[in-house]
Design a protein around this nucleic acid. Sequence first.
DNA 1: GAGTGGTCTAGACCACAGA
DNA 2: CTGTGGTCTAGACCACTCG
Lengths: 254, 254
Amino acid sequence: MEPGQRTGYRDIAAALRTEITSGVYPPASLLPPESQLATRYGASRSLVNRALGLLAAQGLVRPQQGRGTIVTWLPPMLHSAARYSQATRERDGARGAFDSEVKALGLEPRHEIAVERAEPPAHIADALGLTAGEACLVRRRRLLASGIPVRINASWVPLTIAGDTVLEDPAPNITGGIKSALAELGHRQTAAWERIIPSRLPSDAEAALLEISPERTVTDILHVGRTADGRVVEVTTTVTPAHYLTVEYDIPLS
Amino acid sequence: MEPGQRTGYRDIAAALRTEITSGVYPPASLLPPESQLATRYGASRSLVNRALGLLAAQGLVRPQQGRGTIVTWLPPMLHSAARYSQATRERDGARGAFDSEVKALGLEPRHEIAVERAEPPAHIADALGLTAGEACLVRRRRLLASGIPVRINASWVPLTIAGDTVLEDPAPNITGGIKSALAELGHRQTAAWERIIPSRLPSDAEAALLEISPERTVTDILHVGRTADGRVVEVTTTVTPAHYLTVEYDIPLS
DNA sequence: GAGTGGTCTAGACCACAGA
DNA sequence: CTGTGGTCTAGACCACTCG
Protein backbone atom coordinates (compact mmCIF):
# COMPACT_ATOMS: atom_id res chain seq x y z
CA MET A 1 0.00 0.00 0.00
CA GLU A 2 1.44 3.35 -1.00
CA PRO A 3 1.49 5.96 1.74
CA GLY A 4 -1.38 8.36 1.26
CA GLN A 5 -3.19 5.73 -0.81
CA ARG A 6 -6.67 4.92 0.34
CA THR A 7 -7.32 1.35 1.41
CA GLY A 8 -9.91 -0.04 -0.96
CA TYR A 9 -11.72 -3.35 -0.76
CA ARG A 10 -9.43 -4.67 -3.46
CA ASP A 11 -6.46 -3.80 -1.30
CA ILE A 12 -7.99 -5.58 1.66
CA ALA A 13 -8.73 -8.61 -0.52
CA ALA A 14 -5.19 -8.57 -1.87
CA ALA A 15 -3.71 -8.38 1.61
CA LEU A 16 -5.80 -11.30 2.80
CA ARG A 17 -5.02 -13.26 -0.35
CA THR A 18 -1.32 -12.88 0.35
CA GLU A 19 -1.76 -14.04 3.92
CA ILE A 20 -3.80 -17.03 2.84
CA THR A 21 -1.48 -18.19 0.07
CA SER A 22 1.59 -17.65 2.23
CA GLY A 23 0.24 -19.91 4.95
CA VAL A 24 -0.68 -17.40 7.65
CA TYR A 25 -4.20 -18.79 7.44
CA PRO A 26 -3.87 -22.42 6.33
CA PRO A 27 -6.54 -24.41 4.48
CA ALA A 28 -9.60 -25.30 6.56
CA SER A 29 -8.73 -22.71 9.24
CA LEU A 30 -10.88 -19.75 10.22
CA LEU A 31 -10.19 -16.14 9.31
CA PRO A 32 -10.63 -13.52 12.04
CA PRO A 33 -14.19 -12.16 12.25
CA GLU A 34 -15.15 -9.37 9.89
CA SER A 35 -15.47 -6.86 12.73
CA GLN A 36 -11.90 -7.56 13.78
CA LEU A 37 -10.60 -7.28 10.21
CA ALA A 38 -12.49 -4.01 9.89
CA THR A 39 -10.57 -2.62 12.85
CA ARG A 40 -7.29 -3.94 11.52
CA TYR A 41 -7.70 -2.28 8.14
CA GLY A 42 -9.44 0.84 9.44
CA ALA A 43 -12.54 0.19 7.36
CA SER A 44 -16.19 -0.53 7.97
CA ARG A 45 -17.44 -4.05 8.27
CA SER A 46 -19.39 -3.58 5.04
CA LEU A 47 -16.16 -3.02 3.21
CA VAL A 48 -14.49 -6.07 4.70
CA ASN A 49 -17.59 -8.06 3.82
CA ARG A 50 -17.22 -6.94 0.25
CA ALA A 51 -13.54 -7.86 0.19
CA LEU A 52 -14.35 -11.31 1.53
CA GLY A 53 -17.03 -11.61 -1.13
CA LEU A 54 -14.31 -11.15 -3.73
CA LEU A 55 -12.16 -13.84 -2.19
CA ALA A 56 -15.17 -16.13 -1.92
CA ALA A 57 -15.95 -15.61 -5.60
CA GLN A 58 -12.40 -16.67 -6.35
CA GLY A 59 -12.66 -19.74 -4.17
CA LEU A 60 -10.14 -18.75 -1.53
CA VAL A 61 -12.58 -18.65 1.36
CA ARG A 62 -16.06 -19.73 2.23
CA PRO A 63 -17.88 -17.44 4.67
CA GLN A 64 -20.47 -19.27 6.74
CA GLN A 65 -23.19 -17.56 8.60
CA GLY A 66 -22.92 -18.10 12.33
CA ARG A 67 -19.60 -19.87 12.15
CA GLY A 68 -16.95 -17.77 10.51
CA THR A 69 -14.98 -17.58 7.31
CA ILE A 70 -13.24 -20.80 6.37
CA VAL A 71 -10.12 -20.87 4.21
CA THR A 72 -10.82 -23.12 1.22
CA TRP A 73 -7.72 -22.26 -0.78
CA LEU A 74 -5.44 -25.20 -1.55
CA PRO A 75 -1.87 -24.92 -2.81
CA PRO A 76 -1.49 -25.37 -6.58
CA MET A 77 0.14 -28.78 -6.18
CA LEU A 78 -3.29 -30.27 -6.04
CA HIS A 79 -3.96 -29.16 -9.60
CA SER A 80 -1.95 -31.89 -11.19
CA ALA A 81 -4.11 -34.40 -9.32
CA ALA A 82 -6.74 -33.81 -11.95
CA ARG A 83 -4.88 -34.83 -15.06
CA TYR A 84 -7.10 -36.47 -17.56
CA SER A 85 -4.59 -37.99 -19.90
CA GLN A 86 -5.38 -41.62 -20.36
CA ALA A 87 -1.92 -42.61 -19.21
CA THR A 88 -2.54 -40.97 -15.85
CA ARG A 89 -6.00 -42.44 -15.58
CA GLU A 90 -4.75 -45.95 -16.02
CA ARG A 91 -1.67 -45.56 -13.90
CA ASP A 92 -3.23 -43.92 -10.89
CA GLY A 93 -6.69 -45.31 -10.96
CA ALA A 94 -9.47 -43.46 -9.31
CA ARG A 95 -7.91 -42.85 -5.96
CA GLY A 96 -4.18 -42.97 -5.64
CA ALA A 97 -3.16 -39.62 -7.05
CA PHE A 98 -5.71 -37.61 -5.14
CA ASP A 99 -4.88 -39.23 -1.83
CA SER A 100 -1.17 -38.76 -2.05
CA GLU A 101 -1.38 -35.18 -3.22
CA VAL A 102 -3.74 -34.18 -0.45
CA LYS A 103 -1.64 -35.93 2.16
CA ALA A 104 1.45 -34.19 0.85
CA LEU A 105 -0.26 -30.91 1.76
CA GLY A 106 -0.81 -32.09 5.30
CA LEU A 107 -4.52 -32.42 4.72
CA GLU A 108 -6.86 -35.35 5.22
CA PRO A 109 -8.28 -36.89 2.03
CA ARG A 110 -11.76 -38.34 2.14
CA HIS A 111 -13.85 -40.22 -0.44
CA GLU A 112 -17.56 -40.68 -0.44
CA ILE A 113 -18.86 -43.27 -2.85
CA ALA A 114 -22.41 -44.24 -3.59
CA VAL A 115 -23.52 -46.83 -6.11
CA GLU A 116 -27.09 -47.05 -7.29
CA ARG A 117 -29.27 -48.01 -10.19
CA ALA A 118 -31.00 -45.05 -11.76
CA GLU A 119 -32.41 -43.64 -14.94
CA PRO A 120 -29.90 -41.21 -16.41
CA PRO A 121 -30.80 -37.62 -17.27
CA ALA A 122 -31.49 -36.92 -20.92
CA HIS A 123 -28.04 -35.69 -21.96
CA ILE A 124 -26.40 -38.72 -20.36
CA ALA A 125 -28.85 -41.11 -21.96
CA ASP A 126 -28.17 -39.43 -25.29
CA ALA A 127 -24.44 -39.87 -24.93
CA LEU A 128 -24.94 -43.51 -23.98
CA GLY A 129 -27.28 -44.06 -26.90
CA LEU A 130 -29.97 -45.38 -24.59
CA THR A 131 -33.67 -45.23 -25.19
CA ALA A 132 -35.74 -43.35 -22.63
CA GLY A 133 -36.38 -45.30 -19.47
CA GLU A 134 -33.42 -47.63 -19.75
CA ALA A 135 -31.62 -47.91 -16.44
CA CYS A 136 -27.95 -47.45 -15.61
CA LEU A 137 -25.56 -48.18 -12.88
CA VAL A 138 -24.21 -44.93 -11.53
CA ARG A 139 -21.17 -44.58 -9.29
CA ARG A 140 -21.12 -41.18 -7.57
CA ARG A 141 -18.04 -39.93 -5.83
CA ARG A 142 -17.24 -36.87 -3.77
CA LEU A 143 -13.63 -36.04 -2.96
CA LEU A 144 -12.72 -33.85 -0.01
CA ALA A 145 -9.53 -32.43 1.45
CA SER A 146 -9.83 -31.82 5.19
CA GLY A 147 -13.55 -31.46 4.79
CA ILE A 148 -13.35 -29.12 1.79
CA PRO A 149 -15.18 -30.66 -1.19
CA VAL A 150 -12.99 -30.37 -4.24
CA ARG A 151 -14.68 -32.58 -6.80
CA ILE A 152 -17.81 -34.59 -7.48
CA ASN A 153 -18.31 -37.01 -10.30
CA ALA A 154 -20.69 -39.61 -11.55
CA SER A 155 -19.97 -42.53 -13.86
CA TRP A 156 -22.90 -43.97 -15.78
CA VAL A 157 -22.76 -47.45 -17.26
CA PRO A 158 -25.72 -49.23 -18.88
CA LEU A 159 -27.19 -51.89 -16.61
CA THR A 160 -26.90 -54.41 -19.42
CA ILE A 161 -23.15 -54.08 -18.99
CA ALA A 162 -22.70 -53.34 -15.32
CA GLY A 163 -25.58 -55.15 -13.68
CA ASP A 164 -24.50 -57.74 -11.11
CA THR A 165 -20.79 -57.18 -11.68
CA VAL A 166 -17.89 -55.89 -9.65
CA LEU A 167 -19.02 -52.40 -10.63
CA GLU A 168 -21.92 -52.65 -8.21
CA ASP A 169 -19.49 -53.04 -5.36
CA PRO A 170 -19.31 -49.72 -3.54
CA ALA A 171 -15.69 -50.33 -2.59
CA PRO A 172 -13.69 -47.16 -2.03
CA ASN A 173 -11.74 -47.96 -5.13
CA ILE A 174 -11.90 -50.25 -8.09
CA THR A 175 -8.34 -51.21 -8.79
CA GLY A 176 -7.16 -49.32 -11.83
CA GLY A 177 -10.35 -47.38 -12.15
CA ILE A 178 -13.63 -48.02 -13.84
CA LYS A 179 -12.01 -48.38 -17.26
CA SER A 180 -9.94 -51.32 -16.11
CA ALA A 181 -12.94 -52.94 -14.50
CA LEU A 182 -14.91 -52.58 -17.70
CA ALA A 183 -12.02 -53.98 -19.71
CA GLU A 184 -11.97 -57.07 -17.54
CA LEU A 185 -15.65 -57.49 -18.26
CA GLY A 186 -14.86 -57.53 -21.94
CA HIS A 187 -15.56 -53.89 -22.68
CA ARG A 188 -12.15 -52.45 -23.35
CA GLN A 189 -12.32 -48.84 -24.42
CA THR A 190 -10.27 -47.64 -27.35
CA ALA A 191 -11.36 -44.03 -27.66
CA ALA A 192 -12.96 -41.27 -25.66
CA TRP A 193 -14.49 -37.89 -26.27
CA GLU A 194 -14.46 -35.08 -23.78
CA ARG A 195 -16.21 -31.77 -23.55
CA ILE A 196 -15.02 -29.16 -21.09
CA ILE A 197 -17.12 -26.24 -19.97
CA PRO A 198 -14.48 -24.22 -18.12
CA SER A 199 -16.90 -22.01 -16.23
CA ARG A 200 -20.61 -22.22 -15.60
CA LEU A 201 -22.97 -21.63 -12.70
CA PRO A 202 -23.68 -24.71 -10.60
CA SER A 203 -27.10 -26.23 -10.14
CA ASP A 204 -28.50 -25.93 -6.65
CA ALA A 205 -27.70 -29.59 -6.03
CA GLU A 206 -24.10 -29.15 -7.18
CA ALA A 207 -23.65 -26.03 -5.09
CA ALA A 208 -24.91 -27.93 -2.06
CA LEU A 209 -22.63 -30.93 -2.63
CA LEU A 210 -19.61 -28.73 -3.25
CA GLU A 211 -20.64 -26.42 -0.40
CA ILE A 212 -20.21 -23.30 -2.47
CA SER A 213 -22.42 -20.28 -2.96
CA PRO A 214 -24.66 -20.39 -6.04
CA GLU A 215 -22.54 -17.79 -7.81
CA ARG A 216 -19.25 -19.62 -7.53
CA THR A 217 -18.61 -21.01 -10.99
CA VAL A 218 -17.69 -24.64 -11.61
CA THR A 219 -15.84 -26.50 -14.32
CA ASP A 220 -17.81 -29.27 -15.99
CA ILE A 221 -16.19 -32.18 -17.83
CA LEU A 222 -18.16 -34.73 -19.77
CA HIS A 223 -16.23 -37.86 -20.64
CA VAL A 224 -17.59 -40.47 -23.06
CA GLY A 225 -15.74 -43.76 -23.49
CA ARG A 226 -16.23 -46.08 -26.47
CA THR A 227 -15.15 -49.62 -27.27
CA ALA A 228 -13.54 -50.64 -30.55
CA ASP A 229 -16.92 -51.39 -32.14
CA GLY A 230 -18.07 -47.85 -31.37
CA ARG A 231 -20.33 -48.69 -28.48
CA VAL A 232 -20.45 -46.16 -25.64
CA VAL A 233 -19.96 -48.06 -22.40
CA GLU A 234 -19.23 -45.27 -19.96
CA VAL A 235 -20.17 -41.64 -19.46
CA THR A 236 -18.55 -39.76 -16.61
CA THR A 237 -19.32 -36.25 -15.46
CA THR A 238 -16.93 -34.27 -13.32
CA VAL A 239 -17.83 -31.02 -11.59
CA THR A 240 -15.35 -29.04 -9.55
CA PRO A 241 -15.08 -25.48 -8.27
CA ALA A 242 -13.42 -23.72 -11.16
CA HIS A 243 -9.95 -23.27 -9.69
CA TYR A 244 -9.04 -26.70 -8.38
CA LEU A 245 -8.34 -28.11 -11.80
CA THR A 246 -5.83 -28.13 -14.59
CA VAL A 247 -6.37 -30.40 -17.55
CA GLU A 248 -3.77 -31.72 -19.94
CA TYR A 249 -4.13 -33.51 -23.24
CA ASP A 250 -1.93 -35.22 -25.75
CA ILE A 251 -3.41 -34.82 -29.20
CA PRO A 252 -2.40 -36.77 -32.27
CA LEU A 253 -2.63 -34.67 -35.43
CA SER A 254 -3.66 -36.65 -38.42
CA MET B 1 -40.80 -13.89 -7.05
CA GLU B 2 -43.11 -15.39 -4.45
CA PRO B 3 -45.63 -12.98 -2.96
CA GLY B 4 -44.40 -11.88 0.43
CA GLN B 5 -40.87 -12.76 -0.58
CA ARG B 6 -38.33 -10.05 -0.11
CA THR B 7 -36.50 -8.91 -3.23
CA GLY B 8 -32.84 -9.69 -2.68
CA TYR B 9 -29.90 -8.74 -4.81
CA ARG B 10 -29.84 -12.28 -6.15
CA ASP B 11 -33.43 -11.87 -7.25
CA ILE B 12 -32.60 -8.63 -9.00
CA ALA B 13 -29.62 -10.27 -10.67
CA ALA B 14 -31.76 -13.21 -11.74
CA ALA B 15 -34.43 -10.94 -13.18
CA LEU B 16 -31.86 -8.98 -15.15
CA ARG B 17 -30.16 -12.18 -16.27
CA THR B 18 -33.44 -13.41 -17.69
CA GLU B 19 -34.01 -10.15 -19.53
CA ILE B 20 -30.50 -10.21 -20.96
CA THR B 21 -30.53 -13.82 -22.11
CA SER B 22 -34.02 -13.45 -23.56
CA GLY B 23 -32.99 -10.55 -25.74
CA VAL B 24 -34.67 -7.63 -23.97
CA TYR B 25 -31.22 -6.11 -23.64
CA PRO B 26 -29.19 -7.41 -26.58
CA PRO B 27 -25.39 -7.76 -26.65
CA ALA B 28 -23.49 -4.46 -26.75
CA SER B 29 -26.55 -2.47 -25.66
CA LEU B 30 -26.84 -0.41 -22.48
CA LEU B 31 -28.78 -1.38 -19.39
CA PRO B 32 -30.92 1.31 -17.74
CA PRO B 33 -29.00 3.34 -15.13
CA GLU B 34 -28.70 1.91 -11.65
CA SER B 35 -30.90 4.63 -10.17
CA GLN B 36 -33.68 3.71 -12.55
CA LEU B 37 -33.34 -0.01 -11.84
CA ALA B 38 -33.43 0.81 -8.13
CA THR B 39 -36.80 2.46 -8.58
CA ARG B 40 -38.07 -0.40 -10.71
CA TYR B 41 -37.19 -3.05 -8.15
CA GLY B 42 -37.99 -0.92 -5.11
CA ALA B 43 -34.47 -1.19 -3.77
CA SER B 44 -31.60 1.13 -3.01
CA ARG B 45 -29.01 1.87 -5.64
CA SER B 46 -26.41 0.09 -3.48
CA LEU B 47 -28.38 -3.09 -3.83
CA VAL B 48 -28.72 -2.77 -7.58
CA ASN B 49 -25.01 -2.04 -7.75
CA ARG B 50 -24.37 -5.27 -5.90
CA ALA B 51 -26.65 -7.21 -8.23
CA LEU B 52 -24.85 -5.80 -11.25
CA GLY B 53 -21.58 -6.75 -9.61
CA LEU B 54 -22.77 -10.35 -9.61
CA LEU B 55 -23.68 -10.23 -13.27
CA ALA B 56 -20.37 -8.57 -14.07
CA ALA B 57 -18.50 -11.33 -12.24
CA GLN B 58 -20.34 -13.82 -14.41
CA GLY B 59 -19.50 -11.94 -17.57
CA LEU B 60 -23.01 -10.89 -18.55
CA VAL B 61 -22.42 -7.16 -18.28
CA ARG B 62 -19.59 -4.71 -18.02
CA PRO B 63 -20.38 -1.59 -15.98
CA GLN B 64 -18.36 1.41 -17.06
CA GLN B 65 -17.95 4.47 -14.97
CA GLY B 66 -19.42 7.53 -16.62
CA ARG B 67 -20.95 5.64 -19.49
CA GLY B 68 -23.35 2.99 -18.32
CA THR B 69 -23.60 -0.78 -18.06
CA ILE B 70 -22.90 -2.61 -21.29
CA VAL B 71 -24.35 -6.04 -22.02
CA THR B 72 -21.44 -8.38 -22.81
CA TRP B 73 -23.38 -11.63 -22.79
CA LEU B 74 -23.35 -13.57 -26.06
CA PRO B 75 -25.68 -16.43 -26.94
CA PRO B 76 -24.19 -19.90 -26.39
CA MET B 77 -23.92 -20.54 -30.12
CA LEU B 78 -20.62 -18.77 -30.02
CA HIS B 79 -19.23 -21.46 -27.77
CA SER B 80 -18.81 -23.98 -30.50
CA ALA B 81 -16.66 -21.43 -32.31
CA ALA B 82 -13.93 -22.37 -29.93
CA ARG B 83 -13.57 -26.04 -30.68
CA TYR B 84 -10.03 -27.15 -30.43
CA SER B 85 -10.19 -30.49 -32.10
CA GLN B 86 -7.55 -30.68 -34.74
CA ALA B 87 -10.12 -31.44 -37.43
CA THR B 88 -11.83 -28.12 -36.74
CA ARG B 89 -8.55 -26.27 -36.65
CA GLU B 90 -7.52 -27.48 -40.06
CA ARG B 91 -10.91 -27.15 -41.65
CA ASP B 92 -11.80 -23.66 -40.51
CA GLY B 93 -8.43 -22.07 -40.21
CA ALA B 94 -7.95 -19.14 -37.95
CA ARG B 95 -10.79 -16.98 -39.05
CA GLY B 96 -13.72 -18.58 -40.78
CA ALA B 97 -15.59 -20.17 -37.92
CA PHE B 98 -15.46 -17.16 -35.65
CA ASP B 99 -16.63 -14.78 -38.34
CA SER B 100 -19.61 -16.79 -39.43
CA GLU B 101 -20.78 -17.54 -35.90
CA VAL B 102 -20.62 -13.92 -34.85
CA LYS B 103 -22.39 -12.76 -37.98
CA ALA B 104 -25.08 -15.36 -37.38
CA LEU B 105 -25.81 -13.56 -34.12
CA GLY B 106 -26.24 -10.26 -35.92
CA LEU B 107 -23.00 -8.95 -34.48
CA GLU B 108 -19.97 -7.51 -36.17
CA PRO B 109 -16.81 -9.64 -36.00
CA ARG B 110 -13.46 -7.90 -35.85
CA HIS B 111 -9.90 -9.20 -35.88
CA GLU B 112 -6.82 -7.39 -34.75
CA ILE B 113 -3.56 -8.97 -35.77
CA ALA B 114 -0.06 -7.89 -34.94
CA VAL B 115 3.11 -9.66 -35.98
CA GLU B 116 6.42 -8.91 -34.37
CA ARG B 117 9.76 -10.39 -33.47
CA ALA B 118 10.25 -10.73 -29.75
CA GLU B 119 11.92 -12.70 -27.03
CA PRO B 120 9.38 -15.11 -25.53
CA PRO B 121 8.60 -15.20 -21.80
CA ALA B 122 10.27 -17.99 -19.87
CA HIS B 123 7.45 -20.53 -19.93
CA ILE B 124 7.06 -20.13 -23.68
CA ALA B 125 10.79 -20.42 -24.28
CA ASP B 126 10.79 -23.56 -22.13
CA ALA B 127 8.01 -25.12 -24.16
CA LEU B 128 9.83 -24.26 -27.36
CA GLY B 129 13.09 -25.65 -26.04
CA LEU B 130 14.86 -22.38 -26.74
CA THR B 131 17.87 -21.06 -24.93
CA ALA B 132 17.45 -17.74 -23.17
CA GLY B 133 17.60 -14.76 -25.48
CA GLU B 134 16.64 -16.59 -28.65
CA ALA B 135 14.06 -14.64 -30.59
CA CYS B 136 10.69 -15.72 -31.95
CA LEU B 137 8.12 -14.57 -34.36
CA VAL B 138 4.90 -13.91 -32.50
CA ARG B 139 1.49 -13.45 -34.11
CA ARG B 140 -0.94 -11.81 -31.68
CA ARG B 141 -4.65 -11.77 -32.35
CA ARG B 142 -7.62 -10.21 -30.62
CA LEU B 143 -11.12 -11.26 -31.63
CA LEU B 144 -14.11 -9.04 -30.96
CA ALA B 145 -17.86 -9.29 -31.46
CA SER B 146 -19.47 -5.88 -31.89
CA GLY B 147 -16.64 -4.34 -29.93
CA ILE B 148 -16.73 -6.93 -27.13
CA PRO B 149 -13.36 -8.69 -26.86
CA VAL B 150 -13.92 -12.41 -26.63
CA ARG B 151 -10.48 -13.91 -27.11
CA ILE B 152 -6.81 -13.04 -27.35
CA ASN B 153 -4.07 -15.37 -28.43
CA ALA B 154 -0.45 -15.39 -29.33
CA SER B 155 1.40 -17.89 -31.50
CA TRP B 156 5.14 -18.18 -30.97
CA VAL B 157 7.39 -19.72 -33.62
CA PRO B 158 11.20 -19.75 -33.46
CA LEU B 159 12.74 -17.20 -35.80
CA THR B 160 14.92 -19.91 -37.29
CA ILE B 161 11.72 -21.39 -38.69
CA ALA B 162 9.51 -18.40 -39.29
CA GLY B 163 11.94 -15.63 -40.14
CA ASP B 164 11.37 -14.08 -43.58
CA THR B 165 8.50 -16.40 -44.44
CA VAL B 166 4.80 -16.01 -45.09
CA LEU B 167 4.30 -16.11 -41.34
CA GLU B 168 5.65 -12.59 -41.06
CA ASP B 169 2.84 -11.35 -43.23
CA PRO B 170 0.28 -9.68 -40.96
CA ALA B 171 -2.55 -10.70 -43.26
CA PRO B 172 -5.91 -11.04 -41.52
CA ASN B 173 -5.68 -14.74 -42.15
CA ILE B 174 -3.20 -17.31 -43.22
CA THR B 175 -5.13 -19.75 -45.33
CA GLY B 176 -5.77 -22.88 -43.30
CA GLY B 177 -4.18 -21.48 -40.18
CA ILE B 178 -0.68 -21.34 -38.88
CA LYS B 179 -0.34 -25.12 -38.88
CA SER B 180 -0.91 -25.31 -42.60
CA ALA B 181 1.54 -22.50 -43.22
CA LEU B 182 4.16 -24.28 -41.16
CA ALA B 183 3.48 -27.54 -42.97
CA GLU B 184 4.11 -25.85 -46.31
CA LEU B 185 7.42 -24.65 -44.93
CA GLY B 186 8.34 -28.24 -44.21
CA HIS B 187 7.35 -28.35 -40.59
CA ARG B 188 4.29 -30.53 -40.57
CA GLN B 189 3.03 -31.18 -37.05
CA THR B 190 2.07 -34.69 -36.02
CA ALA B 191 1.22 -34.22 -32.34
CA ALA B 192 0.26 -31.54 -29.89
CA TRP B 193 -0.01 -31.12 -26.17
CA GLU B 194 -2.46 -28.83 -24.47
CA ARG B 195 -2.89 -27.59 -20.94
CA ILE B 196 -6.10 -25.91 -19.89
CA ILE B 197 -6.41 -23.73 -16.81
CA PRO B 198 -10.20 -23.32 -16.68
CA SER B 199 -10.22 -20.39 -14.33
CA ARG B 200 -7.55 -18.01 -13.17
CA LEU B 201 -7.20 -14.29 -12.52
CA PRO B 202 -5.99 -12.29 -15.51
CA SER B 203 -2.82 -10.27 -15.55
CA ASP B 204 -3.32 -6.53 -15.72
CA ALA B 205 -2.36 -6.59 -19.39
CA GLU B 206 -4.85 -9.36 -20.15
CA ALA B 207 -7.62 -7.60 -18.23
CA ALA B 208 -6.95 -4.45 -20.24
CA LEU B 209 -6.95 -6.23 -23.60
CA LEU B 210 -10.11 -8.16 -22.77
CA GLU B 211 -11.65 -5.07 -21.16
CA ILE B 212 -12.69 -6.91 -18.04
CA SER B 213 -12.30 -6.06 -14.38
CA PRO B 214 -9.27 -7.60 -12.69
CA GLU B 215 -11.45 -10.07 -10.77
CA ARG B 216 -13.18 -11.58 -13.78
CA THR B 217 -11.53 -14.96 -14.26
CA VAL B 218 -10.19 -16.14 -17.60
CA THR B 219 -9.57 -19.50 -19.20
CA ASP B 220 -6.00 -20.13 -20.31
CA ILE B 221 -5.04 -22.67 -22.96
CA LEU B 222 -1.46 -23.51 -23.81
CA HIS B 223 -1.02 -25.39 -27.06
CA VAL B 224 2.31 -26.94 -28.05
CA GLY B 225 2.73 -28.42 -31.52
CA ARG B 226 5.48 -30.88 -32.47
CA THR B 227 6.75 -32.30 -35.73
CA ALA B 228 7.38 -35.99 -36.32
CA ASP B 229 10.97 -35.71 -35.13
CA GLY B 230 9.77 -34.28 -31.81
CA ARG B 231 10.75 -30.71 -32.46
CA VAL B 232 8.41 -28.05 -31.03
CA VAL B 233 7.67 -25.60 -33.81
CA GLU B 234 4.71 -23.70 -32.40
CA VAL B 235 3.41 -22.60 -29.04
CA THR B 236 0.07 -20.84 -28.90
CA THR B 237 -1.56 -19.28 -25.86
CA THR B 238 -5.26 -18.50 -25.75
CA VAL B 239 -6.90 -16.38 -23.07
CA THR B 240 -10.62 -15.75 -22.97
CA PRO B 241 -13.12 -14.59 -20.36
CA ALA B 242 -14.10 -17.82 -18.71
CA HIS B 243 -17.56 -18.28 -20.17
CA TYR B 244 -17.09 -17.78 -23.90
CA LEU B 245 -15.53 -21.15 -24.42
CA THR B 246 -16.30 -24.82 -24.66
CA VAL B 247 -13.55 -27.24 -25.54
CA GLU B 248 -13.90 -30.68 -27.05
CA TYR B 249 -11.36 -33.44 -27.49
CA ASP B 250 -11.16 -36.80 -29.14
CA ILE B 251 -8.82 -39.00 -27.19
CA PRO B 252 -7.36 -42.27 -28.41
CA LEU B 253 -6.93 -44.77 -25.58
CA SER B 254 -3.91 -46.95 -26.05
C1' DG C 1 -22.29 20.56 -16.19
C1' DA C 2 -25.12 16.55 -15.99
C1' DG C 3 -25.37 11.92 -15.53
C1' DT C 4 -23.19 7.68 -14.97
C1' DG C 5 -21.00 4.00 -12.16
C1' DG C 6 -17.30 3.29 -8.04
C1' DT C 7 -16.65 3.41 -3.41
C1' DC C 8 -17.51 3.88 1.35
C1' DT C 9 -19.80 4.54 5.93
C1' DA C 10 -22.84 3.99 9.83
C1' DG C 11 -26.18 1.72 11.40
C1' DA C 12 -29.73 -1.59 11.42
C1' DC C 13 -31.92 -6.02 11.53
C1' DC C 14 -31.92 -10.91 10.31
C1' DA C 15 -30.36 -15.95 10.17
C1' DC C 16 -27.64 -19.24 11.85
C1' DA C 17 -24.20 -21.98 14.78
C1' DG C 18 -22.56 -23.24 18.93
C1' DA C 19 -21.71 -23.11 23.95
C1' DC D 1 -27.51 -16.14 24.77
C1' DT D 2 -23.64 -14.51 22.17
C1' DG D 3 -21.11 -13.94 18.20
C1' DT D 4 -20.85 -14.82 13.55
C1' DG D 5 -21.82 -13.60 8.67
C1' DG D 6 -25.99 -11.96 5.32
C1' DT D 7 -28.49 -8.31 3.84
C1' DC D 8 -30.10 -3.79 3.25
C1' DT D 9 -30.63 1.37 3.44
C1' DA D 10 -29.72 6.23 3.10
C1' DG D 11 -26.70 9.18 2.04
C1' DA D 12 -22.31 10.88 0.72
C1' DC D 13 -18.47 11.88 -2.21
C1' DC D 14 -15.46 10.63 -6.04
C1' DA D 15 -14.08 9.55 -10.99
C1' DC D 16 -15.23 9.25 -15.38
C1' DT D 17 -17.67 10.17 -20.02
C1' DC D 18 -19.96 12.92 -22.95
C1' DG D 19 -22.20 16.72 -24.83
